[in-house]
């Protein structure tokens, strides 16, 4: 009963957070890097939320909602994955990475379903648009506000119900499967953990690479390798120093280019 209550709570909060994705404010509370840690923090494991959020952020941040396109819903998937991780509780073989992979894997289909449901919501919203024009002609323009809010309500219903159904199916299923996972399969899931990370980085690398800036990638990689292996620094410094140094190098080059007009 306690788990059902928690599933309901996560779905309710997840549905509200997900409103920020399109219809409400768009302050990016719905981004996986915020939404997943928020759920994690509320239900007792911020660290897991941070990791799951980071994975989804890398994989989904460059799926752009441009024009009519409706991308995969990484936000809702991150919320569901965090919910699964938190509610399943025990990791297979005592490996939290394996459970994170399993949670992400289980939540990925819901990002595609959420995408389809978004399309459906927008098609229903076509009627809201027609109705808005009708209420103006009917001399009751005040109803436009109500119609607009009904679009928000519809979007919430989509997020909440998908979250609820996904968690109701996935949590008991994974709980029952975990004791039967072989050590080999746990290792496979651990490998998947790194594979997700690499796919996320590769996706962004592909989106942002250009011949002109390969050197920046190489320079920061070499510096970070240097600071994490030859002169081991704390992780935040091993990451921050190369960013600052390569950023300074880029700044100097840009200034020289501006000054001498050279390419």
């Amino acid at each position: 009963m306690g788990v059902i209550k928690q599933i309901f709570e996560i779905s309710l909060i997840g549905g509200l957070i997900n409103l920020d994705d399109v219809p409400l404010t768009q302050t990016m509370i719905s981004q996986p890097i915020v939404a997943a840690p928020l759920i994690g923090w509320m239900f007792g494991d911020l660290q897991a939320g941070l990791v799951i959020g980071a994975f989804f952020e890398l994989m989904m941040v460059y799926l752009l909602p441009i024009g009519c396109s409706v991308p995969l819903d990484g936000s809702l998937a991150a919320i569901i994955a965090t919910g699964i991780y938190l509610l399943v509780g025990s990791s297979p073989g005592g490996q939290p990475e394996a459970l994170i992979s399993l949670a992400i894997l289980s939540a990925l289909p819901s990002s595609a379903i959420a995408q389809k449901l978004s399309v459906l919501v927008r098609e229903v919203n076509n009627r809201i648009s027609d109705r808005a024009q009708a209420v103006v002609l009917d001399k009751t323009p005040g109803k436009i506000d109500l119609l607009h809010f009904s679009g928000i309500g519809l979007f919430f219903l989509r997020s909440f119900s998908l979250c609820l159904i996904s968690l109701l199916i996935a949590v008991p299923l994974i709980r029952s499967v975990i004791p039967f996972l072989s050590p080999g399969l746990v290792r496979g899931l651990k490998l998947l953990y790194f594979a997700y990370l690499m796919i996320g980085i590769a996706l962004l690398f592909d989106a942002f690479r250009s011949r002109d800036t390969y050197w920046l990638f190489a320079l920061s990689f070499l510096l970070a390798t240097l600071f994490s292996t030859v002169w081991p620094l704390p992780a935040w410094m091993a990451f921050g120093m190369p960013c600052v140094l390569a950023g300074a190098g880029y700044g100097i080059r840009e200034r020289l280019r501006g000054k001498y007009g050279c390419r």
Binding site: T229, P242, C243
Partner: peptide
């Protein structure tokens, strides 16, 4: 450009 810097520094860490 800064994005590539971040991605490069991120991998080893």
């Amino acid at each position: 450009s800064f994005m590539l810097i971040i991605l490069g520094a991120m991998i080893p860490v």
